[in-house]
């Protein structure tokens, strides 16, 4: 009799546990929000998107590493990235992804770009002119390493549209210039076609 009661109680507890389930440690309101895979193919619209950025960066970095131009771990700086499309595209993002992958490869050293230079100069001046630091520990002025190569990019697009179809063709071109000689030492491009139908 007692054994039967215990079994019944256990079954009831088990059923109630199954009915409610455990709650995940999230703060969630009525609106459904989920984290997705950042590497997924994004097909929301045919405007420039995350997948385009990732594909361009992967192609350019792969091509650069494959050619072996970075033998001897040379110094490189990021120069201009022109956006010649009709869209607003943060081209710095593309170059940042390329730079991140190249730095992680360990094959190249990047020097400060023009946009990053002022922060470096400010820090040098703070260390050398504020009088706050031990002179032995301060970074010396005039010791920066200049870049052997300069990286320049350009994004263009061709858009064609009719009543039912919109076709966008993107082309990203990246060039690596030898700063001293002014010659192009490497160049590659990534073409992307995106077509949408109404």
């Amino acid at each position: 009799m007692i054994k039967a009661s215990i079994l019944a109680l256990a079954a009831t507890l088990l059923l109630s546990a199954c009915a409610t389930g455990v709650q995940s440690p999230v703060v969630r309101f009525d609106r459904q929000v989920n984290y997705g895979d950042a590497k997924s193919v994004e097909l929301v619209t045919n405007e420039f998107g995350s997948s385009d950025l990732q594909m361009i960066a992967e192609k350019m970095v792969g091509s650069l590493l494959e050619t072996g131009i970075f033998q001897g771990r040379p110094t490189v700086t990021i120069s201009t990235v022109k956006n010649k499309t009709s869209e607003y595209v943060d081209t710095t993002n593309v170059m940042n992804s390329i730079q991140t992958a190249l730095v992680k490869s360990g094959k190249v050293r990047f020097t400060r770009s023009i946009n990053e230079m002022q922060a470096g100069v400010d820090e040098l001046q703070r260390q050398n002119q504020s009088g706050l630091y031990k002179s032995k520990t301060t970074a010396k002025v005039g010791q920066m390493t200049a870049a052997k190569y300069s990286m320049e990019g350009e994004l263009t697009s061709i858009v064609k549209q009719n009543n039912t179809t919109k076709d966008v063709f993107y082309k990203f071109t990246l060039k690596l210039f030898d700063v001293e000689e002014g010659t192009i030492e490497w160049q590659d491009e990534k073409e992307i076609r995106k077509t949408s139908k109404r």
């Binding site: 895979d37 590497k39 997924s40 997948s51 594909m55 992967e58």
Partner: peptide
């Protein structure tokens, strides 16, 4: 190695 490539179509 690394974060993994992006998916491609």
């Amino acid at each position: 190695v690394g974060d993994g490539e992006s998916w491609k179509q």
